[in-house]
Design a protein around this nucleic acid. Structure first.
Lengths: 336, 336
DNA sequence: GCTACAGCACAAAACGTTTTAGTAAAAGGT
DNA sequence: ACCTTTTACTAAAACGTTTTGTGCTGTAGC
């Protein structure tokens, strides 16, 4: 048996399809009696408006797209950690659903072949855009509503983004390390040209200058993971230059690598070296000792991103960005 | 400027919309010259068929839904590990895209409120169905094409699933443990009533009977995570009954908990106790010592699930299931 | 008794496609 | 020369909604 259409409901209730549509959407001027009758019939027939038909007419799909760039680089890396994505996507999907919308995964808009359905969505959430992000450019020029997670470093005028205040969070972490006795903190940043890396490094340098502390920054590709952290740690801990007394890694995986290498070199953490990470991950929680880290609040961020996007779709122009504060998990790796 | 419609292309190319549609879809009998002209114009106008309009007419959405039940229980648990989901969803999304389809995240179909767009998808992928799964029942009765990851233990007739042969994989792991000297292997299973738990436990008991070894099964909720593994390990390692010389945990998180507790109790792994996990996760890879585990091949599985679903959508009735072999990662926790 | 207006319901148009059912001209067969 | 088939193309119907515009009825105001 095929699904019931609005015509079935109209026939059964003895009214026109217009009236059914109005009754169901609370639009027209129908008498309370008719409205109730229609509602009852619709309920009995388990009628739901065909999403395509409604979408076609309304010009709205009822679907949002989520483009976390790393998704297509399966198996390689996720900058902020693998569980970040799950928690983010989950919260985003639930939030969308709460508004009656679906959330579609779009691996990569830059691919040559055409993502059929991807062109029909109402709006986009783009995770961690790179400087002058190509996908963002394309969407903006097509006037598609879009919200990013973290700002585009090359697009200061674009404020429809959601995320942490990287400057504040970086300073918070550095202050903690300083309070725990660190006087020479090295920064291990990623190589992706996104706001997270850019703003954190800037904040780090400014902070060091203010405190008259040395600034040393190593860039390690996010994709290098633990291995990358290992290598960097070897350079920092065995090089000619004086050993830093603290290392702040942007990613949890790098931090885990640093910790492993420190153990191998018999540099005690936290005794000889304080260690902290700019994003929480299973690696930081499970490490021995556990690594102090910033929890970037993926659920909060996912929810905020979808809600900002929906606000835009509804014509709400409340200006962005939406800053989602991170939470600082102080763990054994920075014990005094 | 609004997006180009088929009418624009028709006008510009000096033909009817029918001809445009035919030329673009390779359907009718158009002369090669006309076809080329239409194609050129369509390309110049960057025309793409409006997904909704096409979907409405064709009765196809171009979107598949992915319902991994745990998604709505954010922050609580994912049975097979958090990175399994990302890799699975990523591969599934890419595969769908390769076929011109989108992949929509649907947190939970059992929710009371109506997932608007969720009713318009062409087919469903359901992760790890429980016995007589309610979502599965509803979809099947609505004649919606659906593929599950792992079978529904209460529905032996339903063969449209993709996943490992749990019996074979369990035996493989137990054989390994036995070969490494284990004579008393305990099983730490989950409590979810899905095929993975059911079939693995059955295989374990049969194997133990054949080998005339004792069988001991502890059930720990998947959601209990490392904590659950900790508790179970305490019971197994300090109880009155003789200590097992190997523990096989279904989930990687449980295994990580067992390992932590073993260390606390000064039970050496692998010296005094062999440890293995039925699913690979960051916990198993990063643990010290690293834990031997079955890699359930999430990418393979995600791809296979989407491809089986698409085959069904296209009327291909090649019978299921599609067995995806797991890969056994032998690590330090089972060294001789 | 006429006008104005609110209340209620509906027919028809529109959304952008694909598919069906054609038509006219050209080609082929006798 | 006539019928049939093929080729090349098209108008219109259909998909299932929402929205626009219109008509009818009854009541209030004068």
């Amino acid at each position: 048996m095929a699904r019931a259409t609005i015509r079935d409901v109209a026939r059964e209730a003895g009214v026109s399809v217009t009236t059914v549509s109005h009754a169901l959407n609370g639009k027209g001027t129908a008498s309370e009696a008719t409205r109730q009758r229609v509602l009852a019939v619709a309920d009995r027939l388990a009628y739901r408006a065909h999403p395509m038909a409604r979408g076609l007419r309304r010009g709205r799909t009822g679907v949002l797209a989520l483009d976390m760039r790393p998704l297509d680089a399966i198996g390689s890396y996720l900058p902020v950690g693998v569980d970040y994505f799950v928690r983010f996507a989950g919260a985003a999907a639930v939030t969308a659903l709460d508004h009656g919308l679906g959330l579609m995964l779009v691996p990569d808009m830059t691919r040559a072949d055409v993502p059929q359905a991807a062109h029909g969505v109402d709006g986009y959430v783009i995770g961690d855009p790179l400087r002058d992000d190509t996908v963002l450019t394309r969407l903006l020029s097509a006037a598609v509503p879009v919200v990013t997670v973290g700002r585009d470093p090359g697009r200061p005028g674009f404020t429809d983004w959601v995320g942490p205040d990287d400057t504040v969070e970086t300073e918070r972490m550095l202050d903690l390390l300083a309070a725990r006795g660190a006087r020479d903190i090295a920064l291990l940043a990623g190589t992706d040209d996104n706001a997270w890396n850019v703003d954190s490094e800037r904040a780090y340098r400014a902070w060091a200058r203010r405190r008259r502390m040395p600034a040393r920054v190593l860039h390690v590709p996010e994709a290098a993971g633990e291995e990358g952290g290992l290598d960097a740690a070897r350079r920092l801990l065995t090089g000619k230059r004086r050993r830093p007394d603290a290392i702040y890694c942007q990613t949890g995986r790098h931090a885990a690598g640093v910790l492993a290498e420190a153990r191998r070199l018999e540099v005690a953490v936290p005794g000889d070296l304080l260690l902290a990470a700019g994003s929480d991950a299973q690696q930081t929680r499970l490490a021995q000792p556990a690594i102090t880290a910033l929890d970037l609040a993926p659920e909060e961020t996912g929810r905020a991103a979808v809600e900002l996007l929906i606000a835009r779709l509804n014509g709400d122009e409340t200006p962005g960005p939406v800053v989602v504060p991170a939470q600082l998990h102080v763990r054994a790796s920075t014990a005094r």
